[in-house]
Structures are given as C-alpha cells and as structure tokens.
C-alpha cells in the first residue's frame, strides 16, 4: 500500500515538472507570437510592392525600405563570409590541434568573455581599426567585418560544441587507416559537425541582423536613396567589388527612425519594417534547417 502511494507521489511530481516545463516553453512562444501579431496588426496594410521597391521619403505612404533591406542583406552576406571560415577554423583548431595548456585555457576563457561584450564596444573598436586604420571607410565592408567580429565567439563556441559530440572512435578509425589529421577533419569531423556549426552560425547571424548601435557608430546612414554598385560589370573582369565600399543603411536603423517620428503613419511603416526583418530572420533559419537536413541524410553512422 505504501509503495503505491509512493509511486503515485512520484508520478505527481513528474506531472508537475512537465507542466512547469510547458509553461516555461509557452512564455517564450506566446511573447514572440504577441509581438508578431502586434506588428502584423499595425504593419500588414503597408506591406505592398511599393514598400519594398521605394526609397525613404517624407511622405509615410510613399516611403519604402529598398535601401534598408538590400543593405541588411548585403551586410549579412559579408558578415557570414567573414565569420564562418574564421570561426570554424578557430573552433577546429582549439578542439583538435591546440595543446591543453595555460595559454589555450586563457584563449578559451577570453572567447567566452567576448560573447558578453556589449555590441557598442565592437562598434567603437571597429571605428578605430577598420574605418581609420585600415581606411575601409564607412562602408558595407566595415559593417560586415564588425558584425562578423561580434558573432565570432558564438560561431567558435558552436563549432566546438558540435565537434565534441563526434565520438572519439571515429577519429581513431580514420587514423587507423592512415589518414592524416587534416584528412580526418576534412572527411569526417567537418561533415559530421556541419549541422551543429550551421545552427551556431544562424544564431549568430540572427543576433547580428537586429543590431543598430555598433553600425551607427561606424557610420551607417539613415537616408540613402541609392543602392550599392552592382557586383557584375559588362567589361573585364566582369566582377566588381565596388559595392563593398558603398554607404548603406539597415532595417533596424530605418525602423528606429520611423518609430521616433511624431506622425502615426510612420509608426505603421516601422511595424512593417519590423515584420520584414522578422521574415528575413525566419527565412535564414528555414534555410539552415533545410541544409542541416541535407547534411544529416549523408551521415551513415
């Protein structure tokens, strides 16, 4: 009899925890949902073709986000291009090559600390380093590199976590058939951990896409009514990097500017810009899930 009571008691505890867990999960989802509904409520009416193809304007109903969404897209592209190779290389080195000594521990602790540095500090650093020292100017290149540094710790840590989940026996098997360390990493570690690395990259990019403070520090604009130069040209060498030097603005800055206007019609524009930003983030996440699925399918163990 006592045993039954005991079991019932434990089952109750189990139920209580699952309920607490469910509530905890819902808090996050409900908040996000409320935010989206609120934005959609205000902003949907503004989401038309003109909104995406027009430049900013003093007339709220004519104003659009062309320069902002193109700017956000291009800056994110540069960010990913810089952060992924650097972050993955650093993560692989720390996990597979670095000797376990004081120096390595120090580096590891510092990387973890870097993830907690406020983004404005990265902006100030980039202003001195990229804008003035390297003469990159207030350009898309500067913005991309700054945000890349910002998300680098996230990418490095995600890479290390992902690599750590691969069983040691895989490494030993590769060595046993005569693979070098690089061959082992190239043929086994990287493909198997790609899913985890990708998740980290996307978390990082999702953080970067909403940043405005460091970008304002390094010269992001608010009104810009032209697009970066095209990367393709009609003459040799057919590729141009002119766009990297272009001035730019991004969606969060445009939205913030509209929110701070007195006219209510601009607030609706800001909501629509917020929705667009959210859609871009979701699209990025969706792409990551799809690529991860493709990678998973190829793994045979």
């Amino acid at each position: 009899m006592k045993i039954r009571k005991d079991i019932a008691q434990r089952k109750r505890t189990d139920k209580v925890f699952s309920l607490v867990g469910l509530i905890a999960t819902l808090v996050g989802i409900v908040t996000l949902l409320a935010l989206m509904i609120d934005l959609a409520w205000d902003g949907t009416a503004r989401l038309n073709w003109n909104f995406f193809t027009a430049f900013p304007s003093r007339f709220p109903d004519k104003a659009g986000i062309l320069s902002a969404w193109v700017g956000t897209g291009v800056v994110m592209f540069v960010t990913a291009l810089a952060a992924v190779p650097m972050g993955v290389a650093a993560g692989v080195y720390l996990e597979e090559y670095a000797p376990k000594n004081v120096m390595t521990t120090l580096i590891e602790i510092n990387i973890a600390n870097l993830a907690g540095v406020p983004s404005i500090v990265y902006g100030l650093m980039a202003l001195g380093l990229f804008v003035y020292k390297f003469q990159f100017g207030m350009s898309i290149l500067t913005a991309g590199l700054t945000l890349a540094l910002l998300i680098l710790p996230i990418v490095i840590m995600a890479t290390r976590e992902a690599i750590r989940t691969i069983p040691g026996s895989i490494r030993e098997a590769a060595f046993a058939v005569g693979a070098t360390k690089w061959q082992m990493i190239r043929h086994h570690i990287l493909p198997y951990s790609a899913g985890g690395i990708l998740t980290g990259v996307i978390i990082g990019l999702s953080r970067a896409i909403g940043e405005s403070a460091p970008l304002i520090t390094i010269g992001a604009l608010t009104f810009i009514a032209f697009l970066p130069a095209s990367p393709f040209t009609g003459t040799f060498p057919f590729l141009s990097f002119e766009w990297l030097k272009s001035p730019y603005t991004v969606l969060p800055i445009q939205a913030f500017n509209w929110v701070s206007r007195p006219q209510k019609a601009f607030h609706l524009n800001a909501a629509a810009a917020g929705l667009t930003l959210m859609a871009m983030t979701l699209a990025m996440n969706g792409a990551a899930i799809w690529i991860r699925y493709r990678f998973r399918k190829r793994i045979k163990w």
Binding site: I216, G219, L221, T222, F223, I224, A225, F226
Partner: peptide, 8 residues
C-alpha cells in the same frame, strides 16, 4: 547627384 544623411 547622390545625397546621404546620417543621424549621429
């Protein structure tokens, strides 16, 4: 002519 305006 191209004009850019920032808010710092």
């Amino acid at each position: 002519t191209q004009v850019t305006v920032g808010i710092s």
